[in-house]
Design a protein around this nucleic acid. Structure first.
Lengths: 212, 212, 212, 212
DNA sequence: TATGAATGAGAGTTCATTCAT
DNA sequence: AATGAATGAACTCTCATTCAT
């Protein structure tokens, strides 16, 4: 299942160039989604994209690292856009508890919409590849997201919306639970995502509640 | 950091044979712990173990898959033994809530004691490597453990020790939270594990509580 | 003794590409002719072809099997062309007995012209190598050729040109006799092929004769 | 199908030693019969013989060449004994034409009785293995047999039992035809050997006949 | 904008053999 | 009469990358 990768030509890139890049990135995402990061080589990407030679990949991206960089930022963009669209009119910034439910629901919904993208996130986080310089990218990206959640939990505690707990650890537990759903989904594509979503939302709502 | 791998000679293996196997397994665990599964090659293991040639690994194990099999079962044994020793006198089988706390505490303690072993579990679960035949082993093993937790939660619900929730999803969330701690620990070895342990125990005690 | 392998660039192959392939195929044929199939490794081929690394062979052929495929079809082409050229004007399709003489003569002549090619046929037929996937190819090819001879013998019997015998067994005996000449030639390159040719032709003419 | 290899202890060999050697030789013959010479390694022989290590093969035979030597001479002995038993009372040394029929019949009968042995002969003749010193052995052995046939044909010509032809080439054609039957049998074990035998006997009787 | 041709490094695996005891 | 432990050499194949044009 090819992800449809947008290709507004960035500055300095011609249209065809941008299209080729997008095609390659899409094939890479699909390949990682299918085989996992470890088995994703230029050769496999070439096949998936229907290219004549891997050479064309090296031509459009300086590096394997460069390609993965691009993949990562593409996937991030897709998620960003998905979440933004979903958030439109949805949330009341003051309602901390609702925010928590919505966070989980949104993540699970994204999972249903772009499972390969989630797989990419997971795989690239796991495959710490120092040699290829992009390694640090994902932890950073992910830390941003967890960090944001942490801040919102902290703020909620100050406002009395939540009880007492370590926001950092709670945020981690939530992220991990969501990632766990991703893993389950990979193993069983028929998974009832909605149920998982509400169940997790309930779970964390209960444990973050204010009064004892 | 070499893991001290026991080597009671199994049936049909001489003492030296068993010792060599143990040495190689230990070096493999250390290497996976350090570089991750993807970068763990015979050459790296050879270096870590101080062997003269990789050939000796092929001599003692039929396969890379065979070696990984052995690694997996060794790590499982280590964990088994650790948990058994810890459990001695510790638990009151009737006390479901205590069981939950203890489960989390034990897992986190194991994490502190044998971080490389945990990394091995994580890496091998993640690196679904069909080519090497051992692939299916770990998911199974891990599923067993989650399954056991699930059953205990279910039983607890029947006895009224816990409130209402999906035991399977709750078990998954717990496992994932523990694995999350492992990831954090890998990034920051100075992590205050005890605090993480109690915090997580509190978290899940709250959300599994009987009354609303 | 390098076989001169033609290299009309097939569809999709550049001239250089085709030339390199032809060079490698030629070297492979020569190597098999010299050392036999069992000892023909990429390293030996590299030496014979004067390549800088075996890597270049893997670059031009997907596989060892792929290379052998190409070798086989090249050798088949060479023989086909040789026989076609020789047949021009030579044969009267109605003259069954002449056909038999000509078959043997042509095979023996080919033997003199391209001994390495014959060795390739023989070696690859003998070395049933399941691991390399090309295994089945040659028996099929060869069976075709024997099959054709069988049919011609059968037809000749119907027309009364030949006496009574099992065409299949006779065809086998003829093929084997010709292959036997190849083996003798390999052992002694000075062999008087012409004499062998006429002697065998006489032999089988006598035994296939009509009247008792 | 394990060949039952006799093991009268040769001079200087104890009974057990001789038995072990016989066991290994038998397993080797079976392996060659099954996989062909090229794929017959110490490892495969070990498996077939149910040995604990290949080391024991190296212990009993100085070399791979040594083992193959022994295999060859064992197979030769088996054939010798088979032919001797069959010849008892059978042949009238003066009847050259009968001798020819009997030669072919005996060879085909042996083929039916010990197909693996025949495969060994064929494989080892084909696999010219210079590195292992035994290479020359088989051609010699085989040449002996063809040579004998050649001499008998020559003698028959002198006595007027046969017509005119090159005895050497005729002998070669006969040998090759018999080997061809072996190849057919390997491909199709249901082969009607008796028919092949008489058909070939007829074929060569016709072509060696005295009058024109 | 693309590609043809080549490459060095490294992977795991199999091979027959040897040094001990 | 046997085995435990080890080994060097060779094998095919895959990888990302580079030098040309």
């Amino acid at each position: 299942m090819q992800v449809n990768v947008d290709h507004q030509p960035e500055f300095g890139l011609s249209v065809t160039e941008a299209a080729r890049r997008a095609q390659i990135i899409g094939a890479t995402i699909a390949t990682i989604g299918e085989l996992g990061y470890a088995k994703t080589s230029f050769a496999r990407i070439k096949e998936k994209a229907g290219l004549s030679s891997t050479r064309i990949i090296s031509y459009h991206f300086t590096n394997k690292a460069g390609l993965m960089q691009a993949v990562l930022s593409t996937v991030s963009d897709i998620k960003e856009r998905f979440l933004t669209e979903r958030a439109a009119g949805h949330t009341d910034p003051a309602d901390r508890r609702g925010m928590l439910r919505e966070y989980i629901a949104a993540e699970v919904a994204f999972l249903g919409a772009y499972p390969e993208c989630v797989r990419v996130f997971l795989e690239m986080g796991a495959a710490g590849d120092d040699k290829d310089g992009w390694a640090m990218a994902k932890p950073v990206v992910e830390q941003l997201r967890v960090g944001q959640l942490t801040r919102q939990l902290t703020q909620g505690q100050r406002e009395g919306a939540f009880g007492e707990f370590s926001p950092a650890i709670m945020a981690m537990a939530i992220r991990q639970a969501v990632d766990g759903v991703a893993a389950q989904l990979a193993a069983n594509p028929e998974l009832d995502l909605e149920r998982y979503g509400t169940e997790l939302a309930d779970l964390f709502e209960r444990t973050t509640r204010a009064s004892a």
